[in-house]
Simulated assay, not measured.
Amino acid sequence: MKVAVITGRYPSHNAPYNHMFVHTRNQQYVKTGVSVKVFVPSGSEHRYQIDNIKVQQQPANEIVKEISDGQYDAIFIHLLHHSINPTIDGGPIYEYVITHDIPCLFFIHGVEVQKLSRSRPGDIRFSKPKSVARAIYRDLWVLNRTRRTITKIINETRNTRFVFVSEWIREDAERTFELNLRQRSEVIHNGIDTELFYFQDRWKDRHKLLAIRPLVLRGTYAVDLAIDAMSKVKDKNISLTIIGKGPEKKDILNYIAKRRASSVIHVTDKFLAHSDIPTAHSHYGIYFAATRMDSQGVSMCEAMASGLPVISFNTCAIPEFVNHNSNGLLLERENSNAMPVLIDELLSNKNTYYRLAEGGRHTAESIDIRHTTAQEIELAKSTIISAKYH
């Protein structure tokens, strides 16, 4: 099977973190014998290889020419956005797929079907006019065109299937667009590499919490909530380390100081390569997946695979992956008052710690990337076979 993967961004040697979850899928497809070529809409043309996967950056209309020669059995689409910039606008690509009813898996990860004003209100700051303009552009212009595209797919094609990474994001998309997507969709979670993220006993490091988050104080990744929660923990032997990159390190450090938590909350200004995250996990005993919005929580699931009991918030898709007191612990949405109680339970009760760690590992194994990508390949093959009989 030959597949053209079209995505808004892709890892490169200069930008190794761009949509890494797409690349890890592609690597697994290739291991199973699928031929993969990646196309990225761009204002200029550039060709390169990463991990033996060929990538072409070129204007959207040139990508249409590439996929129109019939050499690909299926198209996989990830985070291909509509844009007022014609060189990167996904519109012509969607139009070609719809018009020719090409077998297609349209992956929906979250942001492409969500209103910023509802899912990420903390990212909109009236003190920063660009954030307001971005929200208006996304919520009114981009989502309107996305709704038109999805409606046309439902009404005018047989051979495009939607793949949602969680049930919650499917329901959110249906609510946003006022469409019934269930008959044309599947839920297949982002896969976790449970060989890369291997289980280890972390009990001895249970006093050390880890959060891998972009260094942005408020908004989706909820660094402020993590700080608020830790500031309520009175045991000064318990610490939290936040590792990530971002523009607001100074604001975060000031916020930590205001909460008088500088001695127990540490910030490491560093990008972690995906292959380096298991090593980071090995130095900590609990993973704190602070969040205001997650359509899955991949970094949380990776920590679960590594044997770190996780603490997160009961919001969005998190409860699909974390069952409170079974494979992790949940705080109520944006309410960290129970943090001291949860921490005390984990630190003082070895049975609870191991039960949650083992439950988390079991959850990660159930969505191992070898299993999830096999589901995606089978769905694509069934779509290709169906197309031949219509």
Results as ranks from 00 to 15, higher is better:
Val22Phe: 08
Gln58Phe: 14
Val22Met: 08
Ile63Lys: 10
Asp69Pro: 03
Ile67Pro: 05
Gly33Tyr: 05
Gln71Thr: 13
Asn18Ile: 02
Tyr72Trp: 11
Val64Arg: 11
Phe39Met: 05
Thr32Leu: 09
Val64Glu: 12
Val30Asn: 02
Phe21Ala: 07
Gly70Met: 01
Tyr48His: 09
Gly43Thr: 12
His46Val: 07
Asn26Trp: 06
Ile50Tyr: 03
Tyr48Glu: 07
Val38Lys: 12
Ser35Ala: 02
Thr24His: 08
Ser35Met: 08
Ile50Gln: 06
Gln56Gly: 04
Glu62Gln: 03
Val55Gln: 04
Asn61His: 11
Val34Arg: 07
Asn52Arg: 04
Asn52Ser: 03
Ser42Glu: 04
Ile63Met: 10
Pro59Val: 11
Asn61Trp: 07
Ser42Ala: 09
Pro59Cys: 12
Gln58Pro: 05
Glu66Ile: 00
Gly43Phe: 01
Ser35Leu: 01
Ile67Ser: 12
Val40Ala: 05
Lys54Tyr: 08
Lys31Ser: 14
Val55Ser: 08
Thr32Gln: 12
Asn61Ile: 14
Gly43Trp: 07
His19Glu: 06
Tyr29Asn: 03
Val55Glu: 04
Gln56Pro: 00
Ser35Pro: 00
Lys54Ala: 15
Ser42Val: 00
Ser42Pro: 05
Ser68Asn: 07
Val40Ser: 01
Met20His: 09
Ile53Gln: 09
Asn18Asp: 15
Glu45Tyr: 11
Ile67Arg: 00
Thr32Pro: 03
Asn18Gly: 11
Phe21Ile: 08
Val40Asn: 07
Glu62Cys: 00
Asn26Ile: 15
Gly43Lys: 10
Gln56Ala: 10
Tyr17Cys: 09
Thr32Lys: 13
His23Gly: 05
Arg47Gly: 08
Ala60Pro: 03
Gln56Met: 04
Val22Arg: 07
Asn61Pro: 02
Thr32Arg: 12
His19Pro: 00
Tyr29Met: 12
Ile53Asp: 08
Ile63Phe: 04
Lys31Glu: 11
Pro59Glu: 10
Val36Ala: 07
Glu62Tyr: 02
Gln28Cys: 00
Gln49Gly: 02
Asn18Glu: 15
Gln56Asn: 07
Val40Tyr: 15
Thr24Ile: 11
Tyr29Phe: 13
Tyr17Thr: 12
Val34Gly: 04
Gln27Cys: 08
Lys54Asp: 15
Pro41His: 03
Asp69Lys: 14
Gly33Asn: 09
Asp51Glu: 04
Arg25Cys: 15
Ile53Gly: 13
Ala60Ile: 12
Lys54Leu: 10
His19Thr: 10
Gln71Asn: 13
Arg25Ala: 14
Lys31Arg: 09
Asp51Leu: 01
Tyr29Ala: 02
Gly70Pro: 01
Ser44Gly: 05
Gly33Glu: 11
Phe39Val: 06
Pro41Phe: 01
Ile67Asp: 06
Gln58Met: 15
Gly43Arg: 13
Val30Ile: 11
Ser35Asp: 01
Asn52Lys: 05
Ser42Met: 02
Tyr29Val: 00
Tyr29Asp: 03
His23Leu: 06
Tyr29Lys: 02
His46Arg: 12
Lys54Trp: 05
Asp51Asn: 01
Gln49Pro: 02
Ile50Ala: 06
